[in-house]
Design a protein around this nucleic acid. Structure first.
Lengths: 189, 189
DNA sequence: GGATACCCCTATCTACAGATAGATGCGGGC
DNA sequence: GCCCGCATCTATCTGTAGATAGGGGTATCC
């Protein structure tokens, strides 16, 4: 099985989204894949290397989804609704956004990890701001696209984390509703 | 010194806000207070007991601040601005909200800890919703107070966590601005 | 067919975590 | 003067973490 590396990142991703990087041990991870912990070290010498791989993989997948949304066209509200769909898809099974989780563990991350994290959030914000700016004509708000984008980034990350405590997705749902209202559109599309 | 218990919770609080509960060890904590780790266990038999004490103490202090704001009167915007001041005061020195941090570590918390966490967020939401409802006449929004409150709770928790990654308070600032706009008030008071 | 890269193994190290048992010193109250 | 509770100590247990050294098998490439 040469795809153990993929199995490792797949299982690690899910685990970190639930328990955090510190909640993941090389031993448990190895057990679940069916290899030894030393073999995990072969693929990822240090834990920071594993974290880095996770962030990059996650970011790439996320960016790809955003690009698909952009390419799909439609109104801003339609795009933002799709955006919320993407966010909502991680909320199931006691998981939060990988990068939101790692952001909480910031203090124990390597410099490289931190930089990758920054980029993730900056990319999300940029995408949102770009879409908002592109549709500004449709809007009756005077707010800066980047300010709105920052609020949305904070909002969804916070909603995932806080929502999990309550075991509900109401916080994300509220985000949707208020967002739609803020931009003076009707709910959903 | 019979106030070692207070010293413990004080130092532990600050440490957990920066590094999380897992980032705090009884040994380091004991060292900083100047006692032995076994003595920490005397005050807090298990780590969950320490966490519980932290959450309760933190919640009480927070609630107290909210009550002060309510008692201070004034416009809704004034109150919400004060609310943001309170949130902002924890953002310094690489700290996030204690409960936001613990929420990320949810999986490793005791049932009692989780319940206390839920209450913290619910209390914050209730306070916000109550204030919003009380001033609804001043507002031109048709949004439910509890939905707005949920968004605010998510927003500030997320802004603290994401903002720390960037080493800035811009996310909180954006929250302030957008919030003011959402409620159709001028910025700050 | 020998070299080489790849992948996984066994075995082990070092560090540190939370937790417990039992002893010590120091009070105040009976 | 004795007992008891409080707060702390020393010493130690047990478990688990990340990490490393070095060996072996296998497939591919020259």
């Amino acid at each position: 099985m040469a795809d153990n590396r993929q199995k490792l990142t797949k299982i690690a991703l899910s685990k970190v989204q639930k328990a955090g990087l510190r909640g993941l041990s090389f031993r448990t991870l190895a057990d679940e894949v069916g290899i030894k912990s030393s073999s995990v070290h072969y693929h990822f010498p240090e834990k920071a290397d594993l974290a880095q791989a996770l962030i990059e993989q996650y970011s790439a997948a996320f960016t790809s989804q955003l690009e698909t949304i952009s390419a799909g066209g439609g109104s801003l509200m339609r795009k933002l609704s799709r955006f919320m769909d993407v966010i909502e898809s991680v909320a199931s099974s006691d998981s939060v956004c990988l990068c939101g989780m790692l952001a909480a563990e910031l203090e124990s991350l390597s410099a490289e990890n931190r930089y990758a994290l920054k980029r993730f959030f900056a990319d999300m914000e940029d995408w949102l701001a770009r879409e908002i700016a592109a549709h500004q004509a449709e809007l009756s708000t005077s707010l800066e696209p980047h300010q709105l984008a920052k609020v949305m980034v904070s909002g969804v990350e916070g909603a995932l984390i806080v929502g999990r405590v309550h075991g509900s997705t109401e916080h994300l749902a509220a985000q949707r509703t208020v967002l739609a209202n803020l931009l003076r559109f009707e709910d959903r599309t």
